[in-house]
Design a protein around this nucleic acid. Structure first.
Lengths: 340, 340
DNA sequence: TATTTTTACTTAAACCTTTAAGTAAAGAAA
DNA sequence: TTTCTTTACTTAAAGGTTTAAGTAAAAATA
């Protein structure tokens, strides 16, 4: 590996001069700077991030924490798109992205805490998404002195970027009501997260605001992104004697389970039952009928998170800690019928 | 930051003794080792990877190169699943994962080569997937002295893990033929990659091996993962006077475009036209009809790649460079009808 | 011309860890 | 008892970079 030392020798200057020349410091003559740059080029010099990090305590590396719950973390399209746009901004600002995990200390995998891992790698900042934010280790990291941005969850006094779940559900319900539906069910995940709670209370409020009846049976539970649960919840709804005409699901993927259940029962979508998803995954647009859903501006969420985090890293003093709320939009597919 | 120096002071031993005690070296008494460990715990010691990397030239960090072509890299379910299982193995072996990009030198984003970036971060090894393997910079990285594993492409004398594309296509065609189809079309991406070429020639061979006619019009082109192209190709196929009864698509996602086109034409799947995908993405199983496809053992590919790469990193001498071929399996969905 | 300021460097230390080589003391072998 | 070996350390250097502080020469000012 050719280092600054080799360039220094080649040019007959000190290592310090080489460092300054390459990093654009002012107190180096143009002549020397050019000589150094030429030598660096000629010798095939590659900077060494480890040395840089060691000396400066800045890694230009951002840790990303997400949990590979049920082995499908990355295959969650919401997270994948988010990470993609986050990465694009990070790349352009000179930051790399490394996944945070439970490390390996003394050869025992998983023995490090998330915070330890973040410190071990000297991450300049951390993105947290799709994790159990109530987990003590997750909290520890979020509340540490490392700059952090959380997605869809807000800690006291930390930066967060959240989608407007209340508004999203409200708009979906209003849309369905506008299409003439009065019996609207909501299959929801009662996992205790802010997201779930916001959505559920928004659903209830909107329904009552519209003067629509909401029997308890219209609120079955099912986990996010699980077709099986959605299928069961749907079967239950279909068996009601006063069955709903329209069903909202917690996300697009589980909606597929609902669709399968409805079709198994020999019913037509949207002729007999209308369905509504949440998220706006791409396949939804290519289904027949195409899926009516709340399309989350995932790219925008990722970009915003990256900008906020980098701003927090580079200008902690000037950056206001805030919760940024980003609105989605109803995508009017073909899965909700006009009735009444 | 508390370092070994602090522990050394606390325990009244040298920094070297601390290092040895913590890393399990033999020439340290049990008494000292325990004292050091206790002090480390008490002071909240965190090791520093930068210093370790600088000294040892081992980062325990693996670079992953994939190209965010059309901004959807990670949302490619094949890659996401692959990366997920790769990461799981890497995590358990104590390796982190960092994305490779074009870095930022002199403040110009994208100015570093992939290889420079890999050296800059001292990656112990590199995984390459979903990239243009003919790109000179990609080649440069693959053919460097850094241990590398490529997915679905083989360089001379480099480790690779590939899915068995020839077999995959053959099995699909044989399955369709067994279901009674004789007029089988193949919408394919003619992008010049090994994958595409293997598949196309396997298709041609299998068809001729089965004695099935293959007019040129049965081989329209369309890009991977683009519904639009698949739609156009399908419309063309439907307009033929001797139209196929079964259409193979390059991947599941583009199959959705084909399905939409077939339904737009008022035709039933699989009653009028049968369709077949490739990959085995999860939504395919939840469509109606569920999608017949070649399910790639993506998890296995990712795990294998991780094992091979780590083996290459840790035991370069004992590790044989090889191309590992992994077979997929036909998933018999409902999108191919039995005819004849 | 003498003094001050600026320019363009150099020196040296620091960041934290690992490791080869050295050493003093204790234990074993002769 | 003397010599050799082992144990349990310590010393010191190295890895590549940045940066505060120092310095000699040149340029500007008085």
């Amino acid at each position: 590996m050719v280092s600054m030392k080799d360039i220094a020798k080649e040019c007959g200057v000190s290592v310090a001069a080489v460092s300054k020349a390459l990093s654009g410091q002012p107190d180096i003559s143009e002549a020397t700077r050019n000589k150094v740059k030429a030598a660096a080029e000629k010798l095939g010099y590659q900077p060494n991030s480890a040395a840089k990090v060691l000396r400066t305590h800045r890694s230009h590396n951002i840790g990303v924490l997400y949990v590979d719950e049920a082995h499908n973390g990355l295959t969650n399209e919401f997270f994948a798109l988010l990470l993609n746009s986050f990465k694009r901004v990070a790349d352009s600002r000179g930051y790399d992205i490394t996944f945070i995990n439970k490390g390996l200390s003394d050869g025992n995998p998983g023995s490090m805490s998330y915070l330890s891992h973040a410190r071990y790698r000297s991450f300049d900042g951390v993105l947290m998404a799709c994790v159990d934010f109530t987990n003590p280790e997750v909290r520890e990291l979020a509340l540490s002195d490392i700059p952090v941005v959380t997605i869809d969850y807000s800690y006291e006094n930390r930066m967060s970027v959240c989608s407007d779940n209340s508004l999203g559900i409200r708009e979906l319900v209003v849309y369905c009501a506008k299409m003439g539906h009065r019996k609207i069910a909501y299959v929801h995940d009662n996992n205790g997260t802010q997201v779930s709670e916001e959505r559920l209370s928004s659903f209830k409020e909107t329904m009552s605001g519209l003067g629509l009846a909401l029997p308890d049976e219209y609120l079955p539970e099912a986990q996010y992104r699980r077709t099986e649960g959605a299928k069961k919840a749907t079967e239950m709804l279909l068996s009601l004697k006063d069955r709903p005409t329209c069903i909202l699901y917690p996300d697009d993927f589980s909606t597929l389970g609902g669709i399968a259940a409805i079709r198994s029962a020999g019913l037509d979508i949207p002729g007999d039952i209308s369905v509504v998803g949440y998220d706006g995954i791409r396949v939804g647009r290519h289904l027949t009928p195409s899926l009516t859903t709340l399309r989350q501006p995932t790219e925008l969420i990722g970009e915003t998170a990256a900008q906020k985090l980098i701003s927090l890293i580079e200008n902690p003093a000037e950056t206001r800690i805030e919760k940024t709320v980003i609105k989605g939009r109803v995508y009017e597919g073909e899965s909700v019928s006009k009735i009444g």
